[in-house]
Amino acid sequence: MNLFSGGGDTAPDLKTLRTRRVGHVLYVELHSPATGNAVTEPMLDDLYAVFSAPPPETRVLVLSGAGEDFCLGGDRGEFASMVDLDPTGSGVRVSGDKARRVCELITGSPAVTIARLQGKTIGAGLALALACDLRVGADTATFRLPELALGLPTAWGGVLPRLIHEVGAARVRELVLTGRSFGAAEAHALSVLQRIVPEGELDEAVEYWAKPVGRRPTAALRVTKALLHSYGAPTRLADPSVLDGELMASVVAAAHYERERAEG
């Protein structure tokens, strides 16, 4: 299915994203501002559709979020419904596998991917941002990994190995175990962001990267992206992100069993 055969406006099949094309640049906006662009199953489906088959001439993909925040993480109501329907966690397992595939598509895209971040970027939102090649954030942006406080492992979309690879194990350990919020300046120091600017200059900062990349020959850009991805892989710690869905499901099932035993 070619979502973009009709031109530059948002494809009618997309329910949670807005897209537009400008030359060799494809802009993809998470568009559920009423929920803080919380990641849902329909949003994962839309992201998979877009990143698995962008227009062949695309050299840059810009991922942004509508409204005040880039993304407030996974949709907790949807997650709770999954657990209620199946306390063994099978729905959570399927969702986790889908999230991993989406993030791998973003990372492995032959186009250069840019995350444009404002407001809060939390949990699953941070995983989506980290999957991108380049990340620019507003100087007022904040970041957080709250999973442990919610009784869940930090296992969504391969966020933990990506974060350790970019930031370093000791610093990531502190961020994950405390779940504290950190600001743009610290995110820049940790290489979570490569650049910070006033929020009103985010679009200009994105264009500063997108314009020269958009002029690069397609074949050379594709090979260079593949080389960067390949050379970066050996420097990662063992990457068990393929198990993210399984890990999440096992914790959900264990928590349900503990509750039942306490109530019995």
Score class of each variant (00 low, 15 high):
Ser181Tyr: 05
Ala49Asn: 03
Leu145Gln: 06
Glu166Ile: 15
Gly158His: 12
Glu29Gln: 15
Val92Tyr: 01
Val172Asn: 05
Leu148Asp: 04
Arg116Asn: 14
Pro217Trp: 09
Asp69Thr: 10
Ala170Gln: 01
Ala53Ser: 12
Met82Asp: 15
Val159Asp: 13
Ser181Met: 13
Tyr48Pro: 00
Leu30Tyr: 07
Arg135Cys: 14
Val112His: 01
Met248Asn: 02
His256Met: 07
Lys225Asp: 01
Asp86Val: 06
Val25Ile: 15
Met43Lys: 07
Met43Tyr: 07
Val223Ser: 08
Tyr27Asp: 13
Cys71Pro: 08
Arg162Tyr: 05
Ile114Asn: 01
Gly245Val: 12
Leu17Asp: 15
Leu190Ile: 10
Ala233Asn: 03
Glu186Lys: 04
Arg236Ser: 14
Arg21Val: 15
His188Leu: 10
Phe4Ala: 11
Trp156Lys: 00
His165Gln: 07
Pro12Asp: 05
Gly157Asn: 04
Tyr257Met: 07
Ile114Phe: 08
Glu263Lys: 09
Asp13Thr: 08
Leu193Pro: 00
Ser109Asn: 11
Ala254Met: 10
Gly151Cys: 08
Phe79Leu: 09
Thr154Asn: 14
Ala115Gln: 12
Met82Tyr: 15
Ala129Trp: 14
Glu186Gly: 05
Gly89Tyr: 14
Ala254Ser: 12
Glu104His: 09
Ala249Asp: 01
Arg173Asn: 13
Glu260Leu: 13
Ala184Val: 06
Arg180Pro: 03
Ala99Leu: 11
His229Arg: 14
Tyr231Ile: 13
Ala124Gly: 11
Arg162Leu: 15
Ala184Glu: 03
Val159Gln: 11
Glu174Ala: 12
Ile114Gly: 03
Gly245Cys: 10
Arg162Cys: 07
Ala80Ser: 01
Asp13Asn: 01
Glu207Gln: 14
Leu44His: 06
Asp203Glu: 15
Arg100Met: 10
Glu246Met: 04
Asp84Gly: 05
Val62Asn: 02
Leu128Met: 08
Ser230Cys: 07
Arg222Tyr: 08
Arg261Lys: 12
Thr58Arg: 04
Lys98Glu: 00
Pro54Thr: 07
Val39Gly: 06
Arg222Gly: 04
Pro234Ile: 05
Ala99Glu: 05
Phe143Gln: 09
Ala189Glu: 04
Thr140Glu: 15
Leu134Arg: 08
Asp46Ile: 05
Leu175Tyr: 04
Arg59Cys: 02
Ala80Tyr: 00
Ala210Tyr: 07
Leu3Arg: 04
Ala124Arg: 01
Glu147Asn: 10
Ser230Val: 06
Gln118Pro: 02
Phe143Trp: 15
Leu134Thr: 06
